[in-house]
Computed example of a mutant assay.
Amino acid sequence: VSHVLQGPRCPEFYMKCASHPTSDDDLSVALDLIMTNTRGVPCIACTDVMGVVLVFQCSERHVICLDCFQRYCQTRLNDRQFVYHPVIGYSLPCAVGCDESLIKEVHHFRILGDEQYGRYLQYGAEECLLTTGGMMCPSPGCGAGLLPPDGSRKVECDPRLGCGFVFCRLCRGEYHEGACQAVTAPPTGEAAQVNKTIS
């Protein structure tokens, strides 16, 4: 713990982890929803009373243990059920579904671990891109995020960031003039194909 005096009566305190050294200029994010369970409130999921819990920002202040919170986040991530908010980002509400309870500090989702947190960041970026009118390159194995100009059917995946594929904005197939011909397989998985005209 260190402190800095700013002005005659304005101390600021900083907590730093000794296991993860950082420079003096680095700021750490406070995970204000994770608290010591001094009142012995049971977890809303498993009903165990744990020493450290996450307290949601809902008016009911629901409590969930960190193991159950991690499982809640993982399940919602697997089902792509995080909520995109234009100010907060990609977040989750209280596990009970309370109104106005989105977690505002998204670093709480680091509980997912490095690999799953990476998925979380990717899904959040994709959701933000799609919400702002962007699209993903449809070329297999690419998926680069694109913000094509409005009104143009011809879209090129930037070869510096993606694969360079040029495709039709409407049908996502290789770029063409005229009406789109989308080819889709029937739900039975048979080899036959069905043509559908897209206007």
Rank of each mutant, 00 (worst) to 15 (best):
L31T: 05
D114R: 11
S59T: 14
S28Q: 13
E115Y: 02
L31N: 08
Q74E: 13
A125K: 10
L121P: 00
L54I: 11
E12S: 12
A30C: 12
Y72R: 04
P21D: 04
L147K: 14
P21L: 10
P42G: 07
C68D: 07
G145L: 15
R172L: 15
G89L: 01
Y123C: 07
F56L: 09
Y84I: 08
C58P: 04
A182G: 07
P187W: 01
T197D: 13
G141N: 03
G124D: 05
I103L: 09
P11T: 02
E12T: 12
M135W: 00
S23L: 11
D32A: 11
Y120K: 00
R61N: 12
D67F: 07
V155T: 07
S91H: 06
S2E: 15
C137I: 02
S23R: 11
L130C: 03
G124E: 05
L27N: 11
S101Q: 04
G51R: 12
I111S: 06
C157S: 08
E115L: 05
Y175W: 15
C171Q: 11
V41Q: 13
V29L: 11
H85M: 02
C163A: 12
Q122D: 09
E190D: 15
V4N: 05
R172H: 15
D114G: 06
N78L: 12
P138G: 00
C137P: 02
T36F: 10
L5R: 12
Y120W: 08
T75P: 00
E105H: 04
E174S: 15
V41W: 06
Q6W: 04
A185Y: 10
G189R: 05
V106A: 00
A185W: 06
Q116L: 10
R160Q: 15
D24Q: 15
M136H: 01
H176T: 08
P140Q: 03
S91G: 07
G51C: 03
R153I: 08
S28W: 13
